[in-house]
């Protein structure tokens, strides 16, 4: 290696990755093909010894190199920090825990053997949080230092200059965020409605059962009363409460009106007494001059509606369709003529 020219050795250094790859491709098939071509002969070759690659770690070289190219600049030129991650803020910790819980809950329903430690998604979240915390500690420390040097820190909201991302792009980002939020809200609302429905169904069933029960009891009591086992009909008063409960209390005015109506109807149609022959004609009716309430007056015009559509024959066939229909047809004819 020493004898090789300097530049060559350097070339070797950074191209040996590719050589490694090529060596791996020297498969059995390749050898067989070579053997067929006569490039290999039996007995002449033995398996090459496996070379264990030595990995370089030239510590002194690394250190001297670092010293050589390090720039001794004040901090303000570099703005670098080497810091531990900031301690977990309580809200961040809560967020991590919540994420873990929701993730576990969801995945447990699909996979019984799910564990949070092996979950790449949750690990991703935790990892990102660690990066976030590292950056956070830098910001806290860095802003302290910048303020000591009287340098501007965070960009004020009214400072306009070219940004890394265009306004158009930021609009897209905002839109996506909004969509996400709306989606979340909708899903939450749906969840709530589902819950309410579940509860409402329960209540509905209960009310129905109660109604049935009361009805049954009432019927039983009526049966007893009919058979003469009880004398009082107080239960009827009690039974009304159900209806009242459903429809609300009737006002006094309404009650009065209903009573009046009843008395009127009783007077008109009679209350009790015989029900037979009530609709039969009698002398009194025949002598009555007043027109019968439901008798229709003959209506004009309707009979001949569209009278002439089927031609004169149609009108003739109708015959009884009425005089008027005929005349209407005539009018149409006249109209036609006048147009001519």
């Amino acid at each position: 290696m020493v004898a090789i020219a300097d530049s060559d050795s350097e070339e070797m250094e950074f191209s040996d990755i590719d050589e490694m790859e090529e060596a791996e491709e020297d498969s059995d098939e390749e050898l067989q093909r070579k053997f067929e071509r006569g490039e290999l002969k039996p007995g002449l070759y033995r398996e090459a010894e496996k070379v264990v690659k030595e990995h370089k770690n030239n510590v002194s070289g690394l250190k001297s190199k670092l010293e050589q190219f390090r720039l001794e600049l004040p901090w303000i030129e570099r703005l670098d920090f080497t810091l531990e991650a900031a301690p977990i803020a309580p809200e961040l910790n809560a967020e991590i825990i919540e994420h873990g819980q929701t993730r576990e809950k969801r995945m447990r329903s699909q996979n019984k053997y799910f564990t949070l430690e092996d979950d790449p998604v949750h690990n991703d979240f935790v990892r990102e949080m660690s990066f976030y915390r590292q950056a956070q500690s830098t910001v806290l420390e860095g802003y302290k230092k910048l303020e000591e040097l009287n340098l501007p820190t965070v960009r004020p909201s009214d400072y306009f200059a070219e940004m890394a991302k265009s306004d158009e792009h930021m609009q897209k980002v905002r839109k996506r965020l909004m969509q996400k939020q709306v989606g979340q809200q909708i899903s939450e609302r749906v969840k709530k409605i589902r819950e309410i429905k579940k509860y409402g169904k329960k209540v509905q069933i209960e009310v129905e059962q109660q109604k049935h029960k009361e009805k049954r009891e009432m019927l039983e009591k009526i049966k007893k009363f009919r058979k003469g086992k009880t004398d009082s009909i107080d239960f009827l008063e009690g039974g009304r409460s159900l209806r009242d409960g459903a429809g609300g209390n009737r006002s006094k005015k309404d009650l009065k009106k209903a009573a009046f109506k009843r008395t009127f109807k009783d007077k008109k149609y009679g209350f009790g007494g015989k029900k037979r022959n009530i609709k039969r004609n009698n002398i009194k009716d025949t002598k009555d001059e007043r027109p019968l309430p439901n008798m229709r007056k003959p209506r004009g015009g309707k009979g001949g509606r569209g009278g002439n559509k089927k031609g004169p024959m149609g009108a003739n066939v109708r015959g009884k369709g009425g005089k008027r229909g005929g005349t209407r047809g005539m009018v149409n004819k006249n109209k036609g003529r006048s147009r001519k």
């Binding site: 690394l62 570099r78 703005l79 810091l83 531990e84 830098t138 070219e162 940004m163 890394a164």
Partner: peptide, 27 residues
């Protein structure tokens, strides 16, 4: 989003000081 040409703060993990090769990479 940030200003296009504002100077960034650079944050490094403490592990960068653990080995000479990491230290060199950091610099």
């Amino acid at each position: 989003n940030c200003l296009k040409a504002s100077r960034p703060l650079l944050s490094f993990d403490t592990a960068f000081d653990s080995h000479p090769h990491w230290a060199l990479m950091k610099e």
